[in-house]
């Protein structure tokens, strides 16, 4: 089977699995509820605050995405091995790397649909509460949503990498730890820069470049104040996410290609 065909088939099925999972709908309901709560809170505060509504909603979208990326991403491979569904799949003309890419694409598409739905909920909430602000800040909001998706794609690739060699629980712990550390990546680099005279300083700088820098994807503050987000940042973040996903998936593929499925 051609590579593109195999990847598309596996990704379609991964998406089908995700949308038929009731847990996902519960999460989506929870997230929409959070956006609703944000509307309520912003109305309860002194005046109607657009930035609190946007900040709260973007945080809810990120949280839902992280839960999906970490917990579904970590199960992408391990569950297939544990339940032995992978055996029949790999007995077909599907290369292991194509299976991984298909799973990755399926989960990223699931995240796109979920974030898209929540983004629509956010825009509707804004239209209801502060219609004048929507036109002014729609591009920065769209950019913020796009950056959340890029960060989630990177997180999914990392989750997939860990799921190739670690148990689901360990893989989830590793992925979540990287997400937390990655949000403070700039601080780690700053720490390293300030102590360059020590070996630890160089190590901190080196680690900060290897770890994913999730902080650069967070433009919630700028979006909530309707500040423009430049094309340069959009381009660089896109390139960074593509390279990081590519490297993580390449390592995952190299590990998985030679793995014994006992």
């Amino acid at each position: 089977m051609p590579a593109a065909g195999a990847i598309l088939s596996v990704s379609r099925n991964a998406y089908r699995e995700a949308i038929r999972d009731r847990i996902l709908f519960s999460l989506l309901f929870f997230a929409v509820l959070m956006v609703g709560a944000a509307v309520l809170f912003s109305q309860m505060s002194f005046g109607i605050s657009a930035d609190s509504l946007i900040n709260f909603s973007l945080a809810a979208i990120t949280l839902l995405g992280v839960i999906i990326a970490v917990f579904l991403g970590n199960q992408l491979v391990s569950k297939e091995i544990e339940r032995r569904t992978l055996y029949t799949l790999l007995a077909h003309p599907v290369r292991r790397t194509h299976f991984l890419l298909g799973k990755f694409a399926g989960l990223v598409w699931t995240l796109v649909v979920n974030c898209g739905l929540m983004g629509v909920a956010l825009f509707l909430a804004l239209l209801y509460v502060l219609p004048a602000h929507v036109a002014a800040g729609e591009w920065s909001l769209l950019a913020a949503l796009y950056f959340i998706l890029l960060a989630l794609a990177v997180l999914t690739a990392i989750a997939l990498l860990f799921s190739c060699f670690a148990s689901p629980v360990l893989a989830a712990v590793f992925t979540l730890a990287l997400f937390v550390i990655g949000n403070f990546d700039d601080n780690l680099r700053a720490l390293g820069e300030s102590s360059r005279q020590w070996l630890g300083g160089h190590l901190a700088i080196w680690i900060s470049y290897v770890l994913p820098n999730f902080g650069d994807f967070n433009v919630a503050t700028a979006a909530s104040h309707f500040m423009p987000i430049g094309w340069r940042l959009i381009g660089l973040n896109t390139l960074y996410a593509l390279v990081y996903c590519g490297v993580a998936l390449a390592i995952a593929g190299a590990i998985f290609e030679n793995k014994d499925l006992k």
Binding site: R16, R20, A91
Partner: peptide, 16 residues
């Protein structure tokens, strides 16, 4: 692979 059919022992398939 396209010329081979395989049934694993105690199969489990995507139950969704």
């Amino acid at each position: 692979a396209a010329r081979i059919g395989y049934l694993p022992e105690n199969p489990y398939f995507y139950d969704y």
